[in-house]
Design a protein around this nucleic acid. Structure first.
Lengths: 212, 212, 212, 212
DNA sequence: GATGAATGAGAGTTCATTCAT
DNA sequence: TATGAATGAACTCTCATTCAT
């Protein structure tokens, strides 16, 4: 029992440490999110993150090796979140076409509700050009996303669409969704765009269903 | 006569000056294009552009107010080129669906033939978040592009598609094309993507044509 | 008796404490020796010493007030070791000339056997310029060393050398020995230098003995 | 003639540029000399050199790649100066023994007249442990110095000293001189040391001359 | 028009030291 | 005693921009 207690105590300490560690990292990541969103990656100085996080400069560097590592982690979390949303959508019991619409609507709503999200994502993802770890994260995520879309499209097409058309459709859908967000971030005052995405997805699905 | 000669001489001088001016600007812009493509905007120093252009630092600043102004001009030229391609496509006498396919194919081919183009465009366009002039250029271009696509879609649909669906379709097409380029730039080794875009556009057009 | 026991216990505790204290200090000093030898004083971080010592950062600072204090103590021990070697040499019953040769040979051998010693000593001793305690340690040691050398030279000269020549000889000997080590540390690949020092000392001694 | 003038003009410009370049470098080197002498290499910040030089930080880095490069150049000049002194001493028409004495006296006088010189030299030379270029400079210089001393000793010994004794003597002389400077730098208050060096050299030379 | 030396306000990162636990 | 997370002042070096020539 003494041993068990010892173990518990040890585990307790470890757990508390792990909890503090991730709390601190989250604290820094949150600060970085809002700073990067405001100023952009290159426009943000470490001091801005220091100020926003309420920690000291040394603490930031205790938890992250560099500014770049913060950006990489932010991208990882961003894409991880998307993958989770994707997974929960996939699990839902609905007909595939409806699920695709729901996914598009969810995405459009998240763009709408969090207008800073698309610009931040664009900012971070563009870093992928010079930061291999970011490019890799996106590449992996994209593959997962395409696989999921392909599955839904295959189901939605009633099984009678040729595989290459399904792949093309999945790539098209993914491009459309990300391109939509890109435009959201890049256009001065996007308007009348709110419901568009769901509709656009519907059109694409219709095109896939209809035999030529 | 003296006046005329004077004017002619002056005009001659002006023309020569104007020619030199745009030759120099082009020289700088070319250098900046390759430097930005290699190193990214933030990774490039003015000295890199100086070296690549074969001019002096003072000369660069004689022709451009700042590094930012170079980027803005590069974006302007990039989008101007796209608009011209668009206009020439529109003028072509073909059926609208074929024209859309041709546009998509041209775009896909240009991505294929010039693999540095999409990354560079992404790099420059993301600057739009902090450089209003770039955002404005893109916003204007986008409006033009959507207008053209709407026209083609309206014609392609035989005039019996509701206007809001046409708008949604145009936005979807534009998003898809730019999203395609975005993925081209962001994915480690894009493969089997070459013909996809034309096909994807075809699917979308089919979806627009078919009545539910 | 209770008191006595208490005292004994206390003494026992004290002794154990003192033993642990010096063990810990030695542990730290050993670590610092190898770290400083590898990286130099300014190139070494406290974390390097922490890692090399196997202790925690707090422990290092429990036993030493600062990085500087570690360097000072290292110098103290280094010079203390030299003084002890000197003392044991002096005690030896031999003729003075032979003792000088023996000292030189010992020194040369220690340089040979421990090639990191001269560079480390140079590194630490140069700190004397900015760390008064180190300068003082060296000054004291030097005085002792000169006194010993003078004694040996006086004896070796058969008592008929003028005192000022003896002093000059002692200073010269000391300079030569330390200069030898300096060159050992500063020359890329010292070669054919192994036996040189003994010979050099012999020449100097010969010069002192011979009447002009 | 026009051509000649053009050439002259060009040469004139080049010369003026070269003159300004070395004037600036000297300005920086002078500043660094006094700053390093006061604060030591590691104790000096670039800002100190900036302030002492009267130039801007950018200018320093225009003329020197790094702080380290400044130190290397300082060492190069220091040793170059020694080599020149050596060469001029060698050329002098005197008997070799007298020349050695003169060299020792000169060295002792320069230590006496410029008390900051030995500490600075020690400071810079110790950097050789971590800066290969410095180590190389010293190694080269040392070889030259040993060669010159060997020549003088060979002449002074009347040609009847064995070569290995001459080499040992040269190494001994060099070590003694540098060790002397080392002690000058490292001892709190060197006293009665002024004439010692010349005398010490004389003893050594006497030792070399006398047959055993 | 053209040159390139000069400017100087930062930028990211380091690291000796402290202190709550 | 011992730990290691936290501090923050300093540091070297960068680079867009200017301006005397």
């Amino acid at each position: 029992m003494g041993r068990t207690q010892g173990q518990e105590a040890l585990t307790g300490t470890d757990e508390r440490n792990a909890a503090r560690l991730s709390a601190r990292r989250a604290q820094i990541l949150d600060a970085a999110t809002s700073v990067f969103a405001d100023l952009g990656y290159h426009g943000s100085r470490m001091d801005d993150i220091v100020r926003a996080s309420g920690l000291s400069k040394g603490a930031i560097y205790w938890y992250f090796k560099s500014k770049e590592e913060i950006a990489v982690e932010l991208v990882r979390q961003l894409l991880h979140g998307e993958e989770e949303a994707l997974a929960s959508e996939e699990r839902a019991e609905q007909d595939p076409g409806a699920r695709l619409s729901a996914m598009a609507d969810d995405f459009a709503r998240s763009l709408w509700e969090n207008p800073a999200r698309a610009p931040l994502a664009l900012e971070l993802l563009s870093l992928g050009q010079r930061i291999p770890a970011i490019k890799q994260h996106f590449t992996d995520y994209h593959a997962t996303y395409i696989a999921a879309l392909s599955g839904l499209l295959r189901a939605a097409s009633g099984g009678n669409a040729p595989e290459r058309e399904i792949t093309a459709g999945a790539l098209a859908l993914a491009a459309m969704v990300d391109g939509w967000a890109l435009h959201e971030a890049l256009i001065a005052s996007p308007s009348g765009r709110r419901e568009g995405l769901g509709e656009a997805v519907a059109i694409l699905v219709k095109g896939l269903r209809s035999r030529s």
